[in-house]
């Protein structure tokens, strides 16, 4: 399949000199609810923008969790995907770093530990022992890996520390679960919390950030390794220069991002270290 597409692409590149990317199957862009869930209107605009810049159709593929997106990418059914640093370090051979978003000037973000707004006593994750805790996704760094790692650092067993844990399969829903009181604590992507704090302060206002983690590499955009180099470069070019035109800048504002940069694999070394400490990778999702 991939070879046929490559052959077709080469053929098209020969037949249509001057075109950046040969016309062919649409670019398939995987996004996860960890990040961009229920922003259909935004995706439609972004899709149109990318399509215009690339000269090709772009199709956004949404799935319920990271795992499915990772699997689709590994099996070549997606050309690129916006994933988390955790899946990247676990699947280095199946993912090729395409671009890293820049947030507050840096390609970095943090994991936030949040509690309901009316909980004024909690000072650290240790205060949440025997409580109900919400994770976002077992393949999320900020929403799962980091809190697990933090508990291990504090010599606690992440599997029995909480009375009960559950996954919401989305950072926003972690915030909602904590805000509603369903969970007495939750781990959430700091970028998502800050972005929602701008657009939905009434939601984040019902939560309180207790702890902020050290900085990690921002969830990157990755491509399948088999993606033709021309396509890869074309996509990278479009992403890296998004801030240079009005439409792209507006989209970045809506994403609350400064832009994209090529980034480098070492950005995610911290995540890789934590993954080794926690062990077992994504397969060890702490299902109670």
């Amino acid at each position: 399949m991939a070879r046929r597409i490559c052959a077709l692409l080469i053929l098209l590149l020969i037949s249509l000199p001057g075109s950046l990317i040969a016309d062919g199957h649409p670019i398939r862009f995987g996004v996860t609810p960890v990040f961009l869930d229920d922003q259909l209107a935004f995706l439609a605009v972004w899709k149109a923008y990318l399509g215009k810049r690339l000269g090709r159709d772009v199709v956004f593929v949404q799935r319920g969790n990271y795992r499915e997106i990772t699997d689709l990418l590994r099996s070549g059914k997606l050309d690129l995907a916006w994933v988390c640093g955790y899946p990247l370090v676990q699947n280095r051979e199946h993912m090729k770093l395409l671009a890293v978003p820049r947030f507050n000037g840096k390609p970095l973000y943090r994991s936030y530990l949040i509690v309901p707004g009316d909980d004024v006593g909690t000072r650290s994750i240790l205060d949440l022992q025997r409580k109900v805790f919400a994770y976002s996704d077992p393949d999320s760094n900020s929403g799962y890996l980091y809190p697990q790692f933090a508990l291990l650092q504090l010599e606690q067993d992440p599997g029995s520390f909480f009375a009960r844990t559950f996954f919401t399969w989305g950072h926003r829903k972690v915030i909602e679960a904590v805000a509603s009181g369903l969970a007495q604590g939750g781990a959430v992507d700091g970028y998502v919390w800050e972005t929602l704090n701008l657009s939905h302060p009434e939601l984040t206002g019902r939560t309180r950030v207790v702890e902020r983690s050290p900085e990690f590499g921002f969830p990157p955009l990755v491509a399948r390794p088999s993606l033709p180099q021309a396509d890869f470069l074309a996509l990278q070019e479009v992403l890296l220069t998004m801030g240079q035109d009005v439409e792209g800048a507006a989209l970045l504002r809506r994403l609350n991002l400064d832009g994209f940069e090529a980034g480098n694999a070492h950005l995610f070394d911290g995540i890789a270290r934590m993954a080794r400490t926690v062990g077992g990778g994504s397969n060890a999702a702490a299902l109670p």
């Binding site: 919400a134 009960r164 559950f166 996954f167 919401t168 399969w169 829903k173 679960a177 509603s180 369903l182 299902l287 109670p288």
Partner: peptide, 8 residues
């Protein structure tokens, strides 16, 4: 599936 959030 023990999906408490979905149930909620």
């Amino acid at each position: 599936h023990d999906d408490a959030w979905r149930a909620f």
